[in-house]
Design a protein around this nucleic acid. Sequence first.
DNA 1: ATGAAAGCGCTAACAT
DNA 2: ATGTTAGCGCTTTCAT
Lengths: 343, 343
Amino acid sequence: MTTPATHTPRGPTTRNDVARYAGVSTAVVSYVVNGGPKKVAPATEAKVQDAIRVLGYRPNAAARALKLGSSETIGLVIPDNSNPFFSLLAHAVEDAAAERGYALVLTNSDGNLAKERRSVRNLAARQVDGVLLASVLFDPDLEDLEKANIPWVLLNQDHKIAGVNGVGVDLAAGAQAAVQHLIGHGHTSIGLVMGTNVGNDVDDRELGWLRALEEAGLAEGPIARSSFTRSGGYEAGKRLLAAATRPTAIFASSDMQAVGILRALHEAGVAVPGDIALASFDGSAESEYTWPALTTVEQPVREMAEAAVEGILKARRKGEPQQRIFPTTLRVRQSCGCPGVFA
Amino acid sequence: MTTPATHTPRGPTTRNDVARYAGVSTAVVSYVVNGGPKKVAPATEAKVQDAIRVLGYRPNAAARALKLGSSETIGLVIPDNSNPFFSLLAHAVEDAAAERGYALVLTNSDGNLAKERRSVRNLAARQVDGVLLASVLFDPDLEDLEKANIPWVLLNQDHKIAGVNGVGVDLAAGAQAAVQHLIGHGHTSIGLVMGTNVGNDVDDRELGWLRALEEAGLAEGPIARSSFTRSGGYEAGKRLLAAATRPTAIFASSDMQAVGILRALHEAGVAVPGDIALASFDGSAESEYTWPALTTVEQPVREMAEAAVEGILKARRKGEPQQRIFPTTLRVRQSCGCPGVFA
DNA sequence: ATGAAAGCGCTAACAT
DNA sequence: ATGTTAGCGCTTTCAT
């Protein structure tokens, strides 16, 4: 008696096998598995549950998706999952999605527009129920998604665009607060290390930096543009150091860049914050452990992720396009010149 | 003439719509879309391609998955995508999967066994074609996967276990090399900061540390155990600093821990590598930008990801279980005491 | 070279 | 309360 006698289905157990084993119809199995839409007698339900357990039945998600037109899956397209900001965002999105019963399909565009488009198309073909897109572009092409009638939400969407679902952060206000803080420390020459965006759009962090300077009646400090990476920051930092008018403070558009700047400053024997103070943007975990610890503008990543996933669900229910711009929080640590435990 | 006259299907375009529009059978559309298994006359093919373009047809992946019994999707379960090591791994896995036409479903277990099991079950139910699992456990329960007949590969699988598909790295050899290097700098008291594993299994990095010490005839240095995080390293670093016999060098089981240790040392005014030298494990991008830059044992993450994805595909083709243990590379930078650009 | 048709596993409207 | 059954969109064997 090595085999359960009655039948040994070749493939994995199906709903049909369960029905046969429990001596009921397939509909009843469905009702039990899904808890509806019809009621089932307790005794019958027990029989079915039993059959399910004995047979080790697992519903086939593909069949369900085909029937229902929904895969309970959302797609996420980010430039680079090894960038701490995006990896945290991806984690938060996965949590938010899982909480609602959705799985997350992750794709990296590597800052490459062609790859981004390919990812989006691919996700659309896979019948995901929504796409979260952190585009390399300011104003990405969403035609594929629109055609396929797949809801989407733009991440990192910091400008308001009419008719666009987006979540983002108030870049300008955040940057402005950081620079104001630097100004509060008495700095009058504040440089900017700014990341470069694919579309050459002006980043609102630059605006915030400018505004704070203007507001305080200060001259525009030197600017170094580079990629949003550690090595980009490193290069930019060296350039700023070599500039004719070396600033006494620097605002960096990302924590990763600040980490690179820090290295450039250390290598040059420049004391931070003594000789040059530093503040940056993102609020990554890494920023808390640099030396000195970075004063940084923190983005509410978890809230943004929740809002993004909710945005997809709302869009599926035919809600109006929504934009959520979140406020940031200035995390004051030591790189700005504030006395820490060890100033 | 606002509507294409003939028909306005309610839902998205199906293969049927295409067939009708092109005046062919649905089979032909299939042949064209999939490039087989039958040949199609060039003229017919053109008609079909045309219909596809005009109608904006996209194949329904769910239907295809149902029919073929494969979703062209693989699942990845990692403890924490915001941990730099795993985020890099996830990125590499996504690349490897995408290259082969597979999408990646990402889930985080948050170091929580219950969540890990839930993830695995969920992936199994979703008919993924394989699961890549970086378990919190040494010897995880793979019953769900086995029952569902879903191939799996264990990541971070550093021991050989019979009949188990796994890829990993030679932890002991890597750790040993790092400690040997520290010994080469003349250190005789080398502490260990070791992460704690859920199952309380002895980590081979500890073994490697021990071996190097024994081999050199040195006494066992002090050990501080903590979580595999920056804050874990920070706490452990402080403990080692307070120990009766303060070591002159420390080997840390992860870069993140080393980052925390670095902070503890800086705060205590201990010079690195002058007073205490440091080496760690992983080879993360962050390790290159700490101050001083970390000497670290680099894992070949991309190769491991490739091997893992290949392992899934091989298992689908009914290959024998395989284990690939990769060698590591010692990246010598400044934290160990080697003269850098700025020693 | 092309087409007809069976059926993948599931859901739910419509019987009974 | 339970059963019957028609598809969801696709692939592919077996005709023609």
